[in-house]
Design a protein around this nucleic acid. Structure first.
Length: 231
DNA sequence: TCATTAAGCATCT
DNA sequence: AGATGCTTAATGA
């Protein structure tokens, strides 16, 4: 299957990144486990496995500080990988299943066997890593240059460009995007997210329905991405 | 301008 | 009844 690199390059939400489908063929070498929704897949300090591969469902990766504060890092869905190759002692990441899921754990020895069998996978894993790097580089710039309210607008605009499906004169972004999720992804407070969405809905620029966001006025939304501030 | 806190309402399970 | 999601208002940085 040909992968959509362009879309990957303009990724707007940190989910799965570059899927490594080819790993499917090697899961018999690793250890496959199933997890119920809400259970812990990786605990802070877990160091046994270098690569964790999601076969189905979805996992959420968080980082936690010394004081116990936590922050979403990314989501990992089907064919996504959680690379733990360059772990240090203080990257307190943990992962929980946000959907019932199956994941496969690979040790260093198992990975070496896989690379020797199919070195393409090696590059696929590197691509996944760079995809994440690119996303977080963009995030750094985004955080530096735009204020929180405008970031929400930019997130919606980006989603429309990358995932928007034309329906009549509008576009639909078919994603389960609660305000809580938007808040977690963008780093903008949930109360502010609520205000920005209310503003956009009132101006009839967007509409929010169960499981989708409808963009009625993409031109206006684009204009707002250039604004210094919204309110 | 936005984060924080608090309080209240609606919907779902 | 409790959890979840959203809104509004007050306050402070």
């Amino acid at each position: 299957m040909e992968y959509d690199f362009l879309n990957e390059g303009t990724r707007t939400i940190p989910d799965t990144f570059y899927p490594v489908e080819k790993l499917q063929r090697f899961i018999h070498l690793g250890i496959v486990k199933s997890y119920a929704k809400g259970s812990a897949v990786i605990l802070p300090g877990d160091k046994e496995y270098l690569l964790i591969y999601v076969l189905s469902g979805k996992v959420q990766i968080n980082m936690v500080t010394e004081e116990g504060r936590q922050r979403l890092v990314y989501f990992c869905g089907k064919n996504g990988i959680m690379g733990r190759i360059f772990q240090t002692n203080n990257d307190n990441a943990y992962a929980t299943a946000i959907e019932k899921c199956r994941v496969c754990f690979f040790s260093k020895e198992q990975l070496l066997t896989i690379f020797q069998t199919d070195c393409d996978i090696y590059f696929e894993i590197i691509k996944n890593g760079f995809s994440k790097t690119l996303y977080f580089m963009k995030q750094t710039v985004e955080m530096e240059l735009y204020n929180p309210a405008v970031r929400i607008v930019r997130l919606l605009y980006g989603l429309c460009i990358s995932n928007g499906i034309p329906v009549g004169d509008s576009y639909e972004v078919r994603l389960e995007l609660s305000q809580k999720r938007i808040s977690e992804i963008s780093g903008v407070h949930f109360v502010t997210v609520s205000k920005v969405l209310a503003f956009l809905i009132k101006q009839k620029i967007i509409e929010k329905k169960k499981g989708k966001v409808i963009i009625h006025d993409l031109d206006r939304l684009k204009e707002l991405t250039f604004e210094k501030r919204l309110f």
